[in-house]
Computed example of a mutant assay.
Amino acid sequence: MRKERRSCLDRPVLALFAAVALLVVCCAATAALAAPPGFDPEAKVLNIFTPLRLKLTAEYSQEHYGTYTADLKQPKMIVLHYTAFHTFDDSYKFFLPPYLDTEERADISSGGLVNVSAHYLVDRDGTIYQLASEDVICRHVIGFNYTAIGIENVGDGADDLTPAQARANAALVNRIVKRHPSIEYLIGHQQYQNSNLPHFKLYLEKDRSYQFTPKQDPGFIFLKRVRKLLRESYGIVLKN
């Protein structure tokens, strides 16, 4: 009899615990979905854009695109890269300073003071870090920064990239496209200066002395893998 009474008394308590647990899960899910505008709810935020960097970006934009602004409005393309560093720490440290290292990047030092960066940095295990809001211009692809969201992948070469990064890139691109229906193109950095590809109609450069630099990241195998995952897992096909 006591055993039955204890069981009956426990039911409301168990129901209360279940309701509280469900409430906690729902609140956590709501918090995850309620990311600030311009930020991905599944990325870890490491925002490197200080007021100084925004000012340097606006100056870069004025010089190369004719408009003094750090705002990225209605992006049309996504560009995939690798960092040329094997570790996350080395990659992040390279992007963190607001000023370009003119010795390390002498090839683009004539183009402006702001350091190179990208909106996202994907670690080798597929963890996604967001370095900048999607509504901010990053310096990552000559002639297209004003309209391109950049995704950097930790790796010192095409062979150093991982399947986890490819899956993370595909999932991230899917979410970005949902937030920005204006996006039409997905390219690898190695494709950016190919004037025969559809994306090239977006090319804009006011400084005619600022020349393209040769690129080979992230490699066609990685790009093909991401495109296949996008098509098969999310039904997304973007032009290049």
Rank of each mutant, 00 (worst) to 15 (best):
D156R: 13
A58S: 14
H86D: 15
F144M: 03
E103G: 08
N169A: 11
M77L: 15
S109T: 14
I108T: 14
I183D: 01
F220K: 14
G143H: 04
V20N: 10
P218F: 09
L80I: 06
V154H: 07
S233R: 13
E42K: 12
E134L: 11
F39G: 03
E205T: 02
V122L: 10
A168G: 02
V116F: 07
P75V: 11
I187Y: 05
P75N: 13
E103R: 14
I128P: 02
E42M: 11
S61D: 05
F222Q: 09
Y146L: 02
E104N: 11
D107I: 00
N240V: 13
K178S: 00
P37N: 09
P218D: 11
C8E: 13
D217F: 10
A168M: 05
D135Q: 08
G111Y: 04
P218T: 07
I187R: 04
L54V: 03
T102L: 03
N115V: 09
I137F: 02
K73Q: 14
T127P: 07
L16C: 13
T162D: 10
L16N: 09
K206A: 00
Y203L: 05
I142C: 02
V13S: 11
Q216D: 12
A21S: 11
F85Q: 08
S133A: 14
Y203M: 04
Y192H: 08
L113D: 13
T83K: 04
C27T: 12
F17I: 09
A34D: 12
L56S: 04
R179L: 09
P41L: 12
D123M: 00
A171D: 12
D90V: 02
I108H: 00
I128L: 06
E152M: 14
F200W: 14
A132V: 03
I78V: 15
P12A: 06
I142G: 01
G38S: 11
D156C: 13
I149K: 01
Q62N: 04
A164K: 12
H64Y: 09
H81M: 12
I183N: 05
A35N: 08
I108P: 00
R208G: 07
E134P: 01
L54K: 15
A15N: 10
G188V: 03
